[in-house]
């Protein structure tokens, strides 16, 4: 595990931002998912040593964050969510400066700055002052400065925020490349399920400061729930009442179809029994593969 969080609680006055959160982040790309205000950024700030948890402990790359915050920050890179730059510097100067702040010799830092900026697709624009950049370019600079010192792990906080569709695809491609080809583990904090699904192999889901699901995306989907698309002939209301009585949830879809989630399992037999009890005919029944969104909705809904 690259990151382990053990019963971490963070309180801001009366508000609890993280509530006894326990999670393990495996090597590779891991998504930190949650709706806005779920505690994702707070968790990252605990892992960076910016915030001291009220209770609990966190380890990054085997280092206790509370005891060795500087060693942790030496070994990782951080791309903040907010727009940030050092005024007056161009992208090369900013990245080289970031490298020097990590302890790299100046010449090495400058060379690595060029490499990191090329890698982030900034090319010739790298000599322009950062404050003149578009949002997408600023995101790339933030990524480059996080990578300049060659970290083993990077924290990316909402890296696709403000990007146009093309920029988003390129950013996600970079993240995939980092974790799959460059041997850099990534913790991707996002509220965009699609971004996480496209780049990560595992996920930690947060809701209201609690970890509600974690594990590999494939396993979570497999264990998620029975999902069916159903069309009935007869009184659909009596059918939905019967299906709800069996602990299932449903929602209407196009074409008279309804999506049924069998929270307690039971498979297609449950659907047929509900149909029989309510006196309707099943005219269409297909099992649907659950998406990360289904897993997430159920996890957050349960919370």
């Amino acid at each position: 595990m690259i990151v382990e969080v053990d019963k971490v609680t963070v309180r801001y006055g009366r508000m609890t931002a993280l509530d006894s959160a326990t999670a393990s982040f495996p090597v590779g790309a891991v998504g930190l998912l949650g709706p806005n205000g779920a505690g994702k950024t707070t968790l990252l700030k605990v892992l960076l040593g910016f915030l001291s948890p009220t209770s609990g402990r966190a380890q990054v790359l085997g280092l206790d964050v509370a005891r060795n915050p500087l060693d942790v920050r030496q070994a990782i890179g951080y791309m903040p969510e907010v727009d940030c730059h050092i005024p007056g510097l161009n992208a090369v100067e900013l990245c080289a400066y970031a490298g020097e702040l990590c302890g790299m010799p100046r010449t090495e830092a400058i060379q690595r700055a060029h490499e990191a900026l090329y890698y982030a697709n900034l090319g010739e624009a790298r000599y322009r002052p950062v404050e003149t950049y578009s949002t997408g370019m600023k995101q790339r600079v933030k990524l480059a400065q996080a990578l300049v010192h060659g970290p083993r792990l990077v924290f990316l906080d909402e890296p696709t925020n403000g990007l146009d569709p093309k920029g988003r695809i390129e950013m996600l491609e970079l993240i995939r490349d980092l974790s799959r080809k460059k041997n850099v583990s990534v913790i991707l904090s996002s509220h965009l399920l699609k971004d996480v699904e496209e780049t990560c192999s595992a996920v930690v889901m947060l809701a209201k400061g609690k970890v509600v699901r974690q594990g590999s995306i494939a396993d979570l989907k497999k264990a998620a729930l029975d999902l069916f698309e159903v069309r009935v002939k007869g009184d659909p209301e009596s059918f939905t009442r019967a299906i709800e009585a069996r602990g299932a949830k449903w929602k209407p879809m196009n074409d008279g179809l309804m999506e049924i989630s069998l929270l307690n399992g039971g498979g297609s037999e449950t659907v047929f029994r509900a149909a029989a009890d309510s006196g309707v005919q099943i005219r269409h029944l297909t099992r649907r593969a659950p998406t990360l969104e289904d897993v997430f909705a159920r996890a957050v809904g349960a919370e």
Partner: peptide, 24 residues
Amino acid sequence: PIYDQSYRPYRGIFSSHTTRWWTI
């Protein structure tokens, strides 16, 4: 040349923490 280089791990040395303020 730089344009041929992709991202690669850094294998050099880092200076001590105590002198980082001097960089600023």
